[in-house]
Computed example of a mutant assay.
Amino acid sequence: MKQRTIGKRVEGVGIGLHKGEPIKLILEPLEADSGVVFYRSDMATSFKAEPSSVLNTQMATVIGNEKATVSTIEHLMSAINSYGIDNIRVILDANEVPVMDGSAISFCMMLDEAGIVELEADKKVIVVKREVEVREGDKYVKLTPSTNPKFNYTIKFENPVIGLQSYTFEFSKENFINQIARARTFGFLKDVQKLNSMGLALGGSLDNAVVIDGGKILNPEGLRFENEFVRHKILDAIGDISLLGAPMIGDYEAFAGSHDLNHKLTVALLSDEKNYEIITLSEATQKEYEKAFA
């Protein structure tokens, strides 16, 4: 199995969630062993999508260096990872990835337009060798060995619109497009109003988020899935875990997880070489793992 990149350069424009201003997004092909590279065209600086680049996980996953940052990368990273893309350049003229409709489906459409091409180099994956867990109170995230990756997520909110929701997602590109990619980010009206007063979430609207007020959903079209909330949490988790720097072969499980816990989980996995193995998918090894890249 070979490494992948995109077939051509594609461009898009969307609103930034926090600043509320238009942001230009360009995706470009990269050669083998380049990884996912973010480039701030307005600051002339690049950084790779990897755990050491993570600077903040409070409200979204933020990566960067001493010169610049990019926020809210998780939806785009989720699509890139689920399409099996190993090498790509993400060019932005602002400090956040545009929110689009609050899901990953717009990024899937850009990747479909660009097309996927295989490179000469063999694909590398990171295989989970033993259980790794990060727990804070009753909240936890963990990785366990598996040759058929799954994301098993449970959320519990006091709000009756969400309540207790669980979903298990069997990882593949087709399943991602059909089951996860269209699930939108969500929030509560009172929290949005508070963020607006702080100069944040100025681009947030019913066009790019599911907004809940008390016991009702404000979006006139309602939900895209009955359990859209937990599906979006899986979307976020796929994006966060993809910062490992190579496709992950293992199972992910979470109860009330977060961007912060996901980042701590990637750091914990990589902190001990007994936790994982990086392997090259030659013809002899790819059969065991090829379903994950269908």
Rank of each mutant, 00 (worst) to 15 (best):
Q3G: 00
R4C: 10
T5M: 00
I6A: 02
R9D: 08
R9Y: 04
V13E: 15
G14S: 04
I15F: 06
G16A: 05
H18Y: 10
I23T: 07
I23A: 13
K24S: 15
K24N: 15
L25D: 13
L25M: 08
I26F: 04
E28T: 01
A32R: 08
G35P: 07
R40A: 06
A44F: 05
T45A: 11
T45Y: 00
F47C: 12
E50H: 09
E50C: 14
Q58Y: 11
M59Q: 10
G64Y: 02
N65W: 01
A68E: 13
I73G: 08
N81T: 11
R89W: 00
I91V: 15
I91H: 08
I91K: 14
D93V: 01
M100W: 12
D101F: 08
G102S: 09
S103T: 07
A104C: 08
I105G: 05
I105R: 13
S106M: 10
M110I: 04
L111R: 10
E113R: 13
A114N: 09
I116W: 07
E118K: 12
E118T: 09
I126P: 08
V127G: 04
V132R: 04
E133W: 00
V134P: 12
R135I: 10
K139T: 13
Y140K: 06
L143Y: 04
P145Q: 02
K150Y: 10
Y153T: 12
T154C: 14
K156V: 09
F157D: 05
F157T: 03
E158A: 14
N159W: 01
P160I: 02
V161A: 06
E170Y: 13
F176M: 03
I180F: 11
I180E: 10
A181V: 07
T185K: 09
F186A: 07
D191F: 09
Q193P: 02
Q193W: 13
K194A: 14
N196G: 01
M198D: 12
L200V: 03
S205G: 11
L206R: 03
D207P: 01
N208G: 00
V211Y: 12
I212L: 04
I212G: 06
L218A: 01
P220G: 05
R224W: 06
F229D: 07
H232E: 11
S242W: 05
L243S: 04
L243H: 13
L244I: 15
G245T: 01
G245Q: 02
P247G: 06
M248F: 10
G250Y: 03
D251Y: 04
G257W: 11
S258W: 05
D260C: 10
L261N: 11
N262P: 10
K264N: 10
V267Q: 15
A268W: 00
A268Y: 01
D272E: 09
I278Q: 07
S282E: 13
S282A: 04
E283N: 14
A284N: 14
A284K: 15
Q286A: 08
E288V: 09
E290G: 01
A292Q: 04
A294C: 06
